[in-house]
């Protein structure tokens, strides 16, 4: 188990109005770890993920990232976000920019690279996700799988120290899921630190260092995949996995 040197999420709680969506959620990650959040829809996985880069605000608890308190009011959220890449379920590519323009925007406007440097970096990142030949295509001209790979390249171009994946394959046709997972596998092999929300159990089983099972905002159970998948301690976990796997 990780000792939480890199990311320490401790007793995080969040409410939307009177509705508590996260209840004292805790888990830890080391640099290079891959942690997968699983759970039924509405269990708070995506919300938890968004609390890490402050796209959602947790009201209680602590999230320490690389020695800094993410939830501190003094932190510059834009600084935080340039170090934490995020990949969205709906891709969210900038519709008016080419693949290359999408990837180059952050380096150019956030990191302050020159026009040619940012374009070069964009080209390199698109090559990394296998889209060197689609650099000048607009999002609407790309398949879902290609769009999501651009989305990954866009996040990588910021050279983040942590990557958040929010159900990156859920909006994809089944035949397009593989190309995205392949890119994610590649990142795991390169040692990227990744926090992933997904329903792809085989991916979770293969690459996760730890699985965190959330239900109704509670961490029901967490542990290495072999333990969680083969010998879940909680009945609730077992039932969820049965339902998911029979679906697979």
């Amino acid at each position: 188990m990780s000792d939480g040197d890199f990311l320490g999420v401790t007793d995080v709680s969040k409410w939307y109005g009177d509705d508590q969506v996260l209840h004292d959620v805790s888990f830890e990650m080391d640099r290079g770890d891959v942690t997968v959040l699983i759970g039924p829809s509405g269990s708070g996985k995506s919300t938890m993920l968004r609390c890490v880069n402050r796209l959602a605000e947790a009201q209680e608890g602590s999230i320490r990232l690389d020695g800094e308190e993410v939830l501190s009011p003094d932190i510059d959220v834009d600084d935080l976000r340039r170090e934490v890449g995020m990949v969205f379920q709906g891709f969210n590519l900038f519709a008016h920019l080419t693949a290359r323009g999408n990837v180059a925007l952050g380096p150019r406007r956030v990191l302050g690279l020159s026009e040619s440097e940012s374009r070069e970096r964009a080209a390199a990142q698109l090559d990394r996700v296998g889209l060197a030949d689609q650099m000048d295509s607009y999002p609407a001209e790309l398949s879902g799988g290609q769009q999501q790979r651009v989305g990954i390249a866009r996040a990588l171009a910021m050279e983040p120290k942590l990557m958040l994946f929010d159900e990156p394959t859920s909006a994809l046709d089944p035949e397009l899921i593989g190309e995205v997972l392949e890119v994610m596998h590649g990142l795991v092999d390169e040692g990227m630190t990744m926090l992933v929300v997904t329903h792809e159990m085989s991916f979770a089983r293969e690459v996760a260092d730890e699985i965190v099972f959330l239900d109704e905002g509670h961490v029901v159970e967490r542990g290495p995949p072999e333990q969680l998948f083969e010998r879940p301690e909680k009945e609730r976990t077992g039932r969820f996995l049965e339902r998911i796997e029979s679906h697979d």
Partner: peptide, 14 residues
């Protein structure tokens, strides 16, 4: 789309 703004904020744009 709202997602366009979320994506912009997520790469660190103000």
């Amino acid at each position: 789309e709202e997602g366009q703004i979320t994506a912009g904020r997520a790469i660190g744009l103000s």
